[in-house]
Nucleic acid binder design. Structure first.
Ligand code: FES
Ligand code: FES
Lengths: 158, 158
DNA sequence: GCGACTTTACTCGGATAACTGCTGTCCGAGTGACCGGGG
DNA sequence: CCCCGGTCACTCGGACAGCAGTTATCCGAGTAAAGTCGC
C-alpha cells in the first residue's frame, strides 16, 4: 500500500481539528515533515473526490468538504488509491487449451468470491470509522500537540 | 494488488484436485495460459513458504506440501506478497516542528490502529478459507474442466 | 478620512522527471527416466 | 532374461532486463489581501 495513504489520513485528521478554517498545503507539509509539492498532489486527489474543499487566494488552503462525522476512512482511501478493487479477476478460467465457455462465467469464480468477501470485510471496517471517531479515540497527547501548533500559527487570529 | 496472487491461487487450487501427483510448471502454465518462466517464479515463492513441495527430475513438478484442509488462502497471499502488513505506520507524529516524544509513542496511533483492525478482519476472512473449502464451493463446470484436462495428460497413467 | 485602483504575494492546478517494485526472461545445477551393452 | 553403466531429457533454482505505478518536483493561472493614490 502506498505511503500517500498515511499522509492523506494525517492531513484529514488535522483538518478535522479545525473544520471551520482552511489550512494551506505549505503549513500541512511543515507540520507533518513531508515534501510540500508531493503532499499538494495528494490533497489534489482528495479535492477531486469531494473529501476536501479548496479555497484559493491568500489566506486560503484546504478545508473539509463535509462534517467530520460524514467522512469515512474508506472515502479517503478511495480518493487516494482509486475505487477499483485491489483484487482483480483476470478470468483465467477462460484461457488455456480447455477454456470455460463464456455462458458458464456469468457468476464470479470461487477465488474471486473469497477475495471480494475478504475485501468487503476490510471496507466495512474502514467505512464504519469516521474522522470524528478518530478524533474521539485519539490520544490526548496527539490532540494537544495539534492544538498547540494550530494556536501558534501566524494566522490572522485574535 | 499484483496479479501474481491470482496465478498462485489458481495453481494451488488445481494442485488441490490431485494432491497425490506432482505437476510441472510447464503444464500449469499451459493449462492457465500464462508465461511459463514467470509462473515458475511464483511457484518458487510458494515453495519457499512451505506451501508447495518441489519434486525434481523427469516426471517431477510441484505438489501440495500439506493437506488441502491445512492450507489457507492467507498462506498463499503471505507467500507471494510477503508477510508484512500492507499499511505501514511511518511515525509521522514524531516528525515536524512539533514532534511527539518517543515515550508517548509506545502505543500505535489511532490511524494505525484502525488500519490494522481492518486488515485483521481481511486476514481473518482469508485465513478461514482453505483450499478444501474452495474445492467444495467450486462450480461443477470448473471441477469438470480441471478433471478432464488432468485425465487427458500424457502422464504415465494406466 | 474614505473609496477605488494597482500592486503584490500567496494559493491551487496541471504537466513533467526519478525511483521502487511487479512483470517477464534467461541459463546453469541436479535428478530421474531411458537406452544400450554385458553377464 | 536380468543387471549395470552411460546418455539423455526434463525439472527446479537463482540471476538478469523491461515496464508501471508511486514518489518527487516544477512552473503557470487565479484570487484575496494589502498598499497606494486621488478625492
Ligand atoms: S478466473 Fe481467476 S480469479 Fe476468477
Ligand atoms: S504516525 Fe502515521 S499512522 Fe502512526
Amino acid at each position: 500500500m502506498p505511503d500517500s495513504v498515511e499522509s492523506a489520513l494525517h492531513c484529514t485528521w488535522l483538518l478535522a481539528q479545525q473544520p471551520a478554517t482552511a489550512l494551506p498545503a505549505r503549513r500541512l507539509a511543515e507540520f507533518h515533515g513531508l515534501p510540500q509539492a508531493y503532499l499538494s498532489k495528494i490533497l489534489k486527489l482528495l479535492t477531486r473526490a469531494d473529501v476536501l474543499r479548496a479555497v484559493p487566494g491568500t489566506g486560503g488552503g484546504y478545508r473539509l468538504a463535509r462534517d467530520p462525522e460524514q467522512i469515512t476512512v474508506l472515502d479517503i482511501l478511495t480518493a487516494v488509491q482509486g475505487d477499483g478493487p485491489m483484487f482483480r479477476c483476470r478470468e483465467l478460467r477462460q484461457r488455456g487449451p480447455v477454456p470455460l465457455p463464456v455462458e458458464a462465467c456469468r457468476r464470479p469464480c470461487g477465488i474471486a468470491a473469497v477475495m471480494h468477501r475478504a475485501e468487503q470485510a476490510w471496507r466495512q471496517e474502514l467505512a464504519a470509522t469516521t474522522l470524528a471517531d478518530l478524533h474521539g479515540h485519539a490520544a490526548t497527547a496527539s490532540i494537544g500537540r495539534a492544538r498547540r501548533w494550530l494556536e501558534a500559527l501566524p494566522t490572522a487570529n485574535g
